[in-house]
Design a protein around this nucleic acid. Structure first.
Lengths: 342, 342
DNA sequence: CTGAAAGCGCTTACAG
DNA sequence: CTGAAAGCGCTTACAG
């Protein structure tokens, strides 16, 4: 089964060159003649030889690895499937750029700098799922101080040369979505989603929502903003608490699709039809959104692009280049749940 | 920013011991006295020293890394969110056992043995999402021949000491679910899901379904088995093609929740109410299942346990131990979509 | 363009 | 229980 390991020395012996030349040829060094390179690469292929990553990384003092950290802020029963899509895109991009992608699910308590940078496990970090900015401040500061390169999804945090971020046009899109609801004739609005200073994406969406209302002189007040984290369960509860206030509402803007799914279930269970009695819109365009009945009006984020940009930015940071944060464009997906559309 | 790297020699100098002793102390070797160990570990902590993974891996000829391969059989628009849950559990288990988890999305064409085993990138592989067994045969044989350790989700493939698998009681549970539908008075059944020899999970579910029907002398025929891969889109199409046959049906068993979601959307769009006109059941218990209206009757697989067992089995295989494949128990989640339940 | 040699930072026999 | 030394398999100055 396990035969003695094939090393670059073996290849060198067979090819009749030195081990250094083998090393160069396999890394496509221009120092090596084209003919020699082809010869060596052919032999390596025949022998199923592959460079030992540990040795090359140790010697070159690099890792060629990116770490993707899912940050689990709170007890979370399940993760937004939205992230799986980003992960897939990030993994593809990393692979095509020659990087390995280490995936971990992190608790706040862990020491990222020691675990990844100091241990030479990764050249940089991709942070997903940070919702509560405040609780991560200490971590982020430590990352910056240690010179660890990192990029964040959804949280605007940039230190030139060290960190960057990718987010989407949360505010503009939420404003446009709300304006669309107003155009459809809705006039009593509620918003579901926690928007503490800690949760930047939801906050931006809420601000866009408020802007749209203000533009049209539509009144709303604090009672009609129900906090909720991104889960069906909290969306469900939020609607129950909204209904218990007895306030009349004809449109609910949810900060995420998961919240919208829970909200619609609760409305159903209380005998309220969507969109006939109450319009509901979400955010994310999860796959389920177009297959729910009524289909969910929502905002589509380009997860493929998001994952790719996160990796590309990080690789650029690692290379010492300056990077510009990305604010990705989004698409309104108008469906039946808002009371119009297909 | 980047200061000279702290090594075990630095720690040794400060602690007043040899570098070997530092190495031993940090790996909790029993050879080192408790006092010395504490002393060294305290200094390492103060200095934010962490063992360089590349060096230790090269020296110890190990990787302490597991690779998780999402196999993308076909053009797949999105991955079953079910896998995200397994991934999360696998990542947690790997971390707690001291292993890194490398995540990649693989095309069939890639050479797994060279990429992971030969390159010393991982000690073993976890294979997720293999649906079409036939097309992977060559890959699996090569893995076995090279002595690469691997475990598979959902496909029964075991070579003692080399590979193992984790699956769930597909057949029994599908049989029980179908029997439940029969008990509720349904008598005209259809099954949606591709069950070529290539797709073992769906095939087992189909066999359980057929068994339940046979037990009760309920007739079905080939027209009432519509192939579909696990996606909402194919579930939707399958129902349209089923309806176009004009065959009367009062219950549809779907091979996955994603299929069921698409199937229910199609039924809705054709003016058929679930469960009043047609009962529908799925498989997987995705988070959405309990928040759809009607809520979806389905089979719950323990993804937390699945992810954990995959990693544990693989670590045991790597350690040279024999492992027994797991067939995990499942739970029927009876909800409204089958015409009974809450 | 190629080779001989040093050395990345550890782990692990070996000796005491 | 501790230390001196070898060596894992590469990359990369340095020399030619």
């Amino acid at each position: 089964m396990k035969t003695a390991k094939t090393t670059s020395l073996d290849i060198a012996a067979i090819a009749g060159v030195s081990q250094s030349t083998v090393s160069r040829a396999l890394r496509n060094s221009p120092e090596v003649s084209a003919e020699t390179r082809r010869h060596i690469q052919r032999i390596a292929k025949e022998m199923h030889y592959t460079v030992d990553r540990n040795a090359s990384r140790l010697r070159a003092q690099t890792t060629n690895t990116l770490a993707l950290l899912f940050c689990e802020d709170e007890v979370e029963t399940h993760i937004n499937p939205f992230f799986l899509s980003i992960l897939s895109s990030a993994a593809h991009t990393a692979a095509s750029r020659g990087y390995d992608l280490l995936v971990t699910f992190q608790q706040l308590s862990e020491n990222w700098v020691e675990d990844f940078q100091d241990a030479h496990r990764a050249d940089g970090l991709i942070l997903l799922g940070i919702r509560d900015r405040a609780s991560y401040d200490a971590q982020l500061i430590e990352l910056v101080e240690s010179g660890t390169r990192f990029v964040i999804w959804g949280l605007e945090h940039q230190v030139p040369g060290v960190s960057s971020y990718v987010t989407c046009q949360n505010q503009e899109s939420a404003k446009a979505l709300t304006a669309h609801l107003i155009d459809l004739g809705h006039s009593s609005f509620a918003f579901i989603g926690r928007t503490s200073t800690a949760n930047p994406e939801f906050r931006h969406r809420y601000e866009g929502y408020l802007e749209a209302l203000a533009d049209r002189r539509i009144h709303t007040d604090a009672d009609l903003h129900i906090p909720a984290n991104s889960s069906e369960a909290e969306g469900y509860e939020a609607v129950e608490s909204l209904l218990s206030t007895g306030r009349p509402v004809d449109a609910i803007v949810c900060a995420s699709d998961l919240i919208a799914v829970g909200a619609i279930a609760a409305l159903n269970d209380h005998g309220l039809a969507v969109p006939e009695n109450i319009a509901v819109v979400g955010y994310d365009d999860l796959p389920i959104a177009q297959y729910m009945r009524p289909a969910l009006t929502t905002v589509r984020q380009d997860t493929e692009l998001a994952g790719r940009r996160l990796v590309e930015q990080l690789i650029d940071l690692i290379a010492g280049e300056d990077v510009e944060p990305d604010e990705l464009p989004v698409n309104l997906m108008i469906r039946r749940s808002c009371g119009a559309g297909a």
